[in-house]
Structure formats: structure tokens, C-alpha cells
Amino acid sequence: MKMSEYDVCIIDDDEAIRESLRLLLFADGLKSCCFESADDFLEKGQGTTFSCMLLDIRMPGKDGLELFQLLNRESLLYPVIFITGHGDIPLAVSAIKQGAFDFLTKPFEEGELLKKIHAALDSFESNRKRALEDRELRSRIELCTPRELDVMRLLVQGLSNKGIADTLNISPRTVEIHRAHVMEKMDAESLPALVRMVTQLETDEV
């Protein structure tokens, strides 16, 4: 199921480039939204959802790289592909170093363009899935009581019920009840599954 309104968001000051790109992507079954400048996007585009961004590196006003830096601070979920001219390769390389997904040189090689866009869309899809999972996991964790969280922390460290009981200075029977609640609230079918969930959250939150 697609979560974004649009597949691609095109930001380019040249109308012909925006429109021809939109049509080319449409021919490939992709839906695009277009903005004519960084400011145009910042003003009107904030509520729009899309899965990948095609961003012209050279634009009057804020250029592509400036907009990217503005957006990047909020740790982007969608990949950004820069559109560059022949002379802009050093700029494009610097964009990649700052976390851009890829870049395309004008005029576009049709096959390359579509390949990179589909790679970006796939990347968005897995990012999005992961983000959704993280959100779900966090909401499940919020269901746990402070005591259950203590038990969960020690569980994923590999301690036995007995060890946990000793550490928390409670009876093994009580640990068993907390443990059952944790497994139920986290919707974990096994201890390894629980460990995986907690590890994923820890990685993503770093």
C-alpha cells in the first residue's frame, strides 16, 4: 500500500524540464508533483507527501544544495536525487557526501533516470517500513509499566528469571508475571523476537 500522495517531487526552476520529467515519469506509471524553486517548495510543499525528490542543484534564490541542507536537518525519510549540469559534478559529489541518494546529469539518459528513481523509491519503501515499525514499537513500549521495562531491559541482556529476580530483589514468580505482560504488550512471540525489536529501536535512535 502506498502511503505518499506522489511518487516523485520535482523541484526545478525550468518549466520545460519540470513538465518533460513529469511526463516521462507518468509514462512509467509514476505520479509527480512540481515546484519551481526552493522557496516555492518550502511555502506550498510542506504538507505534500512523496516518496523521492528530484532536486535541481542550480536554481535562482536558494539553490538545491541549500534546500537539501535545510531539509536534511530534520533527517529525511525520502531519498533526494540531484539534477546537475556537466560542470556541476564537484557540487554533486559534495551533495552525495552530505547524504544525497544519487545525482543525474542533464540531458538524462532515460534508462539511468528510471533506474535511479526506482532505486530511490525502493529505498524510501524500506525506510518507511522501518520507520513505521519503529513507531509501532515505541507505542508498544509506552504500554509497559516501569517495572515491566526493568524486567525487559534485563531480559534482553540475557539474564534468567532467577537472575532478574535477584537483581530487582523480587520473587521469580513476580518476574514471570512481568515477563508474560512484556511479551504480550510487545507482541513478541519469542525472546529472540523481543531482542530484535529492542536492538532495532536502539540502532535507529542513535
Binding site: 524540464i17 513538465e19 518533460s20 538524462f108
Partner: peptide, 9 residues
């Protein structure tokens, strides 16, 4: 290059 890009697309 700009119009050429558009033409090709």
C-alpha cells in the same frame, strides 16, 4: 543543455 534535456525527456 536545458532545452535539449527537455526535448530528450
Amino acid at each position: 543543455n536545458q532545452p535539449l534535456t527537455a526535448i530528450a525527456a
